[in-house]
Design a protein around this nucleic acid. Structure first.
Lengths: 112, 112
DNA sequence: TCACATAGTTACCTATTAGTAACTATGTGA
DNA sequence: TCACATAGTTACTAATAGGTAACTATGTGA
């Protein structure tokens, strides 16, 4: 879901979450922001291989859905900071579970 | 990730999980199978609007990655059952977190 | 012999997503 | 005046994912 438009939420909460963040890049953007506020360029560095275009699209959609906040500083060169909103921070346990399960999966793969 | 091929796992566990199940349909397939073993046709009914082709592709990839198991019964007409593997079941807390967060998000949206 | 049911497969097409590379805006300081 | 840095945007193209509808295999029973 990269497109910016009105979203009808599905009845199932799992489907709702899948719709909002069930996407490779969005998950990793949240992972980055769980380490604190980041600038655009810092996010680019943390997200291996993401292009300006794709990062900027995802940030816009996530902001419009209330997951992250964008703050512009009138400095030169301009400084823009992204951070999680309250509800964005509530994704922390979910990302934590992803971390746990990913480690488990990797350890099992490694012992094959 | 619908394609069936050798997967190099990323160093980050979160990225690993995102790679394996960070996808709308796979999340919902797991949600379905957390309610127990299901036949192909039952999955189709539970996954609103999924086509035969897409369901079958995802099931194949998930089986090859060790998340689900496929069991064929020599009945007529043929009966095929899908279920979670051990590591598949370990996704339960993650899906539970998705449920929780989805409910929270929906309740906030509803009060806007 | 034929229709039925399940569990797919296949060919073809469309839609969505991502990648690339060049370009924009802005104020500063050499 | 010109280059610099940040944070994008834009046009174009490529890759991936999904939709549709018809088709396959199999043994049963009318």
């Amino acid at each position: 879901m990269t497109e910016l438009k009105y979203l009808e939420l599905p009845p199932c909460p799992v489907a709702t979450t899948a719709l909002l963040i069930g996407d490779h890049w969005k998950i990793l953007i949240i992972r980055e922001l769980l380490n604190g506020t980041k600038r655009f360029g810092e996010l680019t560095k943390g997200l291996d291989g993401i292009s300006n275009k794709v990062l900027s699209q995802h940030l816009k959609v996530m902001e419009s859905r209330g997951l992250i906040e964008r703050r512009v500083y009138a400095e030169v060169p301009v400084k823009v900071e992204y951070s999680l909103t309250d509800i964005g921070w509530k994704l922390k346990p979910l990302i934590h579970e992803m971390w746990q399960w990913g480690e488990l999966y990797k350890s099992i793969e490694a012992n094959k």
